[in-house]
Design a protein around this nucleic acid. Structure first.
Lengths: 199, 199
DNA sequence: CATCTATCTGACGCGTCAGTCAATACATCT
DNA sequence: AGATGTATTGACTGACGCGTCAGATAGATG
């Protein structure tokens, strides 16, 4: 079923990238094998190399693929809400590591780890992070214009701290995904919103 | 020079672990080679295997080694200060990713990434994180007892958020270690302390 | 039908690396 | 001196995995 086949070529590409994402989540970026990816995509190693010259090309494209998917999801979800405060609170629930979202966090972690040693990935990470922080900042600005949020906070500063807190605590939730930890993450983020924006 | 040799055996062990930490920082946990470690330690692969049965044993011991070193440094630095507020502010400057400390952050990142797939490391991480958060919590408690910190905040809650914010922003500073980013990290952490504790 | 092109396959070559082991050196005890 | 135990070495082996390539399949074109 899945997608209704754009071109067969595009489909194969996407299937390989989806498979690569899964493999990275399961085995990790460094331990991912081309044969694992091929098997998951229901094809052969030769085909993987037909679409991507080297393993690094597949994996980097997969990271990119995952980050686009994640961002698209955020945009779609936020577009369905009007109130900035609702958007911010929704963003929290949308990104708490749990089931599918935990896989996404795993990808981020692999990404960061790999980026530490590779300039291009560091640049990619910077773009993605800036976009993520910018999304939060935009919501805060809108809330302030609408008089819903306090004018005492600097939107850029708040967004940075909000994102940082999310990453730091989210990381620990990823590693210890207990109900209590997820609840604490949620409470901490909602607390910041209430204390600083909904004064 | 370095250490004045406890036993020669202990020295070799330590040399191998120090070398392993360096290699993990440079090449990453997954790409670390036994021969790299041996070369860095000025010995042979045979000797590395003489002290540690497998590569995983060396690497795990190295992570442990690095975390103990880090904790010891924190304790030593804090013991030299009396005021809880000074201790907290010192902790910030002590742990901003920069030079040696950036290496330490790299180790954490590798640790987290590896821990995602291995129970024992996840448990180790939990212990280390709990100890780190506990250290902050203790400082806050002391500050409250001495009437220096506000009584409005829950120490455990504050400590968790402080640590989370530190990790999340620190991670981005590790990847983009500009002066400005370091300054923002510092400002964000000091801001939280001032706003919530030194009301 | 013959030819051309795009897609796909899996066996193989070649490099890499963890862990083994026989040989060696050195110290300590008898 | 000989014997015993500890530390060290680096060549070697066996496994593994990326990327290549010769060949298969099938659809399109003339």
């Amino acid at each position: 079923m899945q997608y209704m086949a754009a071109t067969p070529e595009e489909d194969r590409r996407r299937a390989i990238l989806d498979a690569a994402v899964t493999v990275v989540v399961e085995r990790g970026y460094a331990a991912a094998r081309v044969s694992d990816i091929a098997k998951r995509a229901g094809t052969s190693t030769g085909t993987v190399h037909y679409y991507f010259p080297t393993k690094v090309d597949v994996l980097d494209a997969a990271l990119q693929h995952a980050s686009e998917r994640s961002h698209a999801r955020h945009r779609a979800e936020l577009a369905a809400l009007n109130e900035p405060s609702e958007q911010l609170l929704r963003l929290i629930d949308l990104q708490i590591p749990d089931a599918d979202v935990a896989d996404e966090w795993s990808i981020w972690l692999e990404f960061w780890n790999e980026a530490r040693r590779r300039d291009e990935l560091r640049d990619r990470n910077h773009e993605i992070y800036t976009r993520w922080v910018g999304m939060i900042e935009t919501i805060v600005r809108k809330g302030q214009r609408q008089g819903q949020f306090s004018l005492d906070v600097d939107p850029a500063d708040f967004a940075l701290r909000f994102a940082g807190l999310f990453d730091g605590l989210g990381l620990q939730v990823l590693l210890q995904p207990s109900l209590e930890n997820r609840w604490r993450l949620r409470a901490a983020l909602r607390g910041v919103v209430e204390r600083e924006l909904l004064s």
